[in-house]
Simulated assay, not measured.
Amino acid sequence: MSLTVNLYYTGEHGSAREFVREMEGSGIAAAIRAESGNEKYDYFQSLNDPETILLIDQWRDQKALDDHHASPMMAQLAALRDKYNLHMRVERYRDAEENPADEAFMRK
Rank of each mutant, 00 (worst) to 15 (best):
Y41D: 10
A101D: 11
D61R: 01
G25Y: 06
T4N: 07
A30D: 00
F105T: 09
E22Q: 03
K40R: 14
R33W: 00
D102K: 10
S26F: 09
A104L: 14
D102I: 12
E91K: 11
N6F: 15
R81C: 13
Q62M: 07
N6D: 13
V5P: 04
M23D: 08
A30I: 05
K40W: 03
D49M: 06
D49K: 03
E22V: 05
K63P: 00
L65F: 12
Q62N: 06
A16P: 10
R60V: 05
R33V: 00
E39W: 00
A70I: 00
P100F: 01
I53Q: 02
N48E: 11
A104Q: 15
M88H: 11
A70G: 02
L80V: 04
S2C: 08
A79W: 00
Y84K: 02
A78T: 09
E12G: 14
L47S: 07
H13P: 12
N48D: 11
Q58H: 02
G25I: 01
S46E: 05
H13N: 15
D82N: 08
R92E: 08
N85Y: 12
R94K: 13
N99F: 09
A31V: 08
Y43D: 02
A30G: 08
K63G: 02
L3G: 09
A64G: 07
P72H: 00
Y84I: 00
E35K: 04
G11E: 11
E35W: 01
L54C: 06
F44W: 05
E39Q: 14
E24G: 03
Q62G: 07
A29S: 08
I32T: 00
Y93S: 03
A16M: 04
